[in-house]
Structures are given as structure tokens and as C-alpha cells.
């Protein structure tokens, strides 16, 4: 019979390595998607998947006091993604002052190959959205990605970011408003 997440987490804390492997199998695609949506490339998403689970393993003794494994996982993955974003920003700031401009070529190069099943129009819209998301501050961007793209609830995001749900609502509202404006401006130009 398939073990529940709390059962697996419990076994993992007690040193069962097969429980850890099963937790990886159940959550790896979610963490990959999150990393990809935040950072925009396969290589970065792969980095986020590996580092998130390595950090989870190293912090397994803390897991006993964790309420929800999934939100703890999101917290680790988003924190690491923000670190990568900051590193990338400071790297590109050193090499190129135009890094914050829309359509920055470095980010375009870092992106993976879009899903071949997507139509040309879908790809174009997705690319526009990604560029608009890149212009948002990290917390607004992450909230929009987690809620509107990955489908996490506001309470899950609040738990992951360790903040009140009102903060999530506010970040989401600002992110959506900015995205709509950015997309409208792009459409008009």
C-alpha cells in the first residue's frame, strides 16, 4: 500500500533512506516546475531540484517540528531560487548594465526549449509573461508563480513564506496589476 506523506516523512526522519527516495519521486516534478517557472531554464530547474533535496536531507532532524512537508519544501526551493536570481543579477550587473532591460538577451539564452506541443501563439504569450514576471520584485513574482501558475493556495504560500495570508493577497494583487500593465504596454508598443 502507498504510504502517506506524513508516514514517509516520519520514516525519513528515523533514517529510512528508501522513504527519502520516495519523497523525491513524489515531489521532484513540482520542485522542477517551480524552479523552471522562477528561473526560466532547465539547467537552473535541475539545480533547484538537486539542491532542495540535498538541503532537505541535511535538515531532516528539523522535519519533526515541520507542520507540512510540502510547504517546507517550497520554502527551501524558493529561498534557493531567490539566491540564484540574486547571484545572476549581480553577475549580469557586473558584465552588463542593460541587464534589467526587458528582453535581456542573457535571460533568453538561459531559457530552455519550450514544449513542442505549444502553438506559436502560446509560446509568444508565454515568453511575454516570463519577461514581465522577470521585472517583478522576488516576493511578488514568487507569489504570482506559486498561486497563479503552480496552483498553490494562499494559505500554503503564507505557510511557506512564514507570513500572514494578507501579505500573500497583497503581493498577489500588486503582481497581477503590474503584469496586466506590463502586458498591455507590450501589446501597445
Amino acid at each position: 500500500m502507498l504510504k502517506s506523506i506524513p508516514e514517509l516523512v516520519n520514516d525519513f526522519i528515523e533514517g529510512d533512506d528508501s522513504a527519502f527516495a520516495e519523497l523525491i519521486r513524489r515531489y521532484r516534478d513540482k520542485i522542477y516546475a517551480l524552479g523552471y517557472q522562477i528561473l526560466g531554464s532547465h539547467l537552473d530547474a535541475d539545480d533547484v531540484v538537486q539542491e532542495t533535496f540535498v538541503r532537505i536531507y541535511r535538515r531532516r532532524r528539523e522535519m519533526a517540528s515541520v507542520k507540512y512537508f510540502s510547504t517546507f519544501l517550497i520554502r527551501i526551493a524558493t529561498n534557493y531560487s531567490i539566491d540564484l536570481l540574486r547571484k545572476r543579477k549581480s553577475r549580469s550587473a557586473l558584465s552588463d548594465d542593460a541587464s534589467s532591460l526587458p528582453g535581456h538577451i542573457q535571460l533568453d539564452l538561459a531559457r530552455g526549449v519550450p514544449n513542442p506541443s505549444d502553438t506559436f501563439e502560446q509560446k509568444r504569450v508565454m515568453e511575454e509573461i516570463r519577461k514581465a514576471l522577470d521585472l517583478l520584485p522576488p516576493k511578488q513574482r514568487l507569489t504570482a508563480i506559486l498561486h497563479d501558475i503552480e496552483g498553490y493556495s494562499k494559505s500554503e504560500i503564507a505557510e511557506a513564506f512564514d507570513c500572514p495570508e494578507a501579505t500573500v493577497r497583497s503581493n498577489l494583487h500588486i503582481a497581477r496589476t503590474k503584469l496586466r500593465k506590463l502586458l498591455k504596454r507590450r501589446k501597445d508598443t
Partner: peptide
């Protein structure tokens, strides 16, 4: 609706197996 439709390319089973093995090697 557009955000909800944002897809991520599927890296494939081979990638998942390889990545899981790497994570297990780096931890366990």
C-alpha cells in the same frame, strides 16, 4: 488563464532517474 496555462517542458524519465540517483549519491 494565461498564467495557469504556463507549461514546463517535460525533462523525461531518463532525466528523473539520473537526477534521483545523483541526489541519493550526494546525500545517502
Amino acid at each position: 488563464k494565461t498564467l495557469a496555462d504556463m507549461t514546463v517542458p517535460d525533462p523525461g524519465n531518463e532525466y528523473w532517474q539520473e537526477t534521483t540517483d545523483i541526489i541519493m549519491a550526494r546525500t545517502v
